[in-house]
């Protein structure tokens, strides 16, 4: 294991985070606060408690997930896309590092950043609504698992993309809708039966549900199913990354 290399890439990526602190941390915090003002206070005050959870608190896990997903994807995608775009990737490819080490450092840095972000949003949310977390360890587990899985997903997008448009395409046009329709702002039970069935094909439903369970102890789907679905998605991403490196897809001519 080339630990010096993993450390170098990881610190390089984290340095990029600190350099772009405003864009990385501040803007998601502001947008989350806006969601609270609009959904939590303005609209939420007219919505009944769901499963005994006040609506303002109810949307917290969903909001964190929303940021976690989009940020994990865009951080990781950008982190690997940019060196490909500028050509500095040559150095990584010519270095004595294994694919595992490359993934570990890039995905590790992207996940670190979004986990920090998730915790910051959680702290911000607690300023708006009183929060108690029923299963804090599970909460952290879901946070980390989701951050890692979607950073891997973002890494794949960053390798697949050959333009900045494509880089933005997936987060904008796929992940955001899936998250909004994934029960971030409502319980799946509130939907008509047909849409409830459709929702079960949306992977984000399982993430949000599991994450919400760790907060309130209630969920749309069983916690075991949520965890299993997350792990399945993680496995799929790992398999795709392994394939990318085995074939050199979009990395080596």
């Amino acid at each position: 294991m080339n630990l010096y290399a993993v450390r170098s890439i990881y610190l390089f990526e984290m340095a990029r985070t600190w350099r772009t602190l405003l864009q990385s941390i501040v803007s998601p915090v502001i947008s989350t606060s806006l969601y609270f003002v609009v959904f939590g206070s303005a609209i939420g005050s007219r919505i009944d408690a769901i499963d005994g959870v006040d609506y303002g608190a109810f949307i917290v896990p969903g909001l964190i997930m929303l940021s976690l997903l989009t940020q994990s994807i865009s951080n990781a995608a950008f982190g690997i896309y940019f060196p490909r775009f500028t050509g500095t990737i040559f150095e990584i490819l010519s270095a004595p590092v294994s694919y595992l080490e490359i993934v570990l450092s890039y995905v590790g840095a992207a996940a670190t950043k979004s986990i920090l972000l998730g915790l910051i949003i959680l702290a911000t949310a607690s300023l708006f609504v009183p929060l108690t977390i029923v299963h804090p360890v599970w909460m952290l587990l879901f946070l980390v698992l989701t951050a890692v899985t979607f950073s891997l997903f973002g890494f794949i997008i960053g390798i697949w993309a050959d333009s900045f448009e494509k880089l933005q395409f997936v987060p904008m046009l796929v992940v955001t809708p899936l998250t909004f329709l994934g029960g971030s702002f409502y319980a799946i039970d509130m939907l008509p039966p047909f849409w409830r069935t459709v929702s079960l094909f949306n992977p984000v439903v399982y993430l949000v549900s599991g994450f919400r369970w760790s907060f309130f102890g209630t969920a749309d789907v069983a916690i075991g199913v949520s965890l299993a679905m997350t792990l399945v998605f993680l496995g799929i991403c790992l398999a795709v990354v392994a394939w990318i490196f085995r074939t050199g897809y979009r990395l080596k001519n």
């Binding site: 080339n2 010096y4 290399a5 450390r7 170098s8 890439i9 390089f12 340095a15 150095e91 990584i92 270095a95 004595p96 590092v97």
Partner: peptide, 13 residues
């Protein structure tokens, strides 16, 4: 930073 990065990348302390 960039020169130190390269050294680490190639596995040197």
């Amino acid at each position: 930073a960039t020169v130190s990065f390269s050294r680490g990348l190639f596995g040197k302390p």
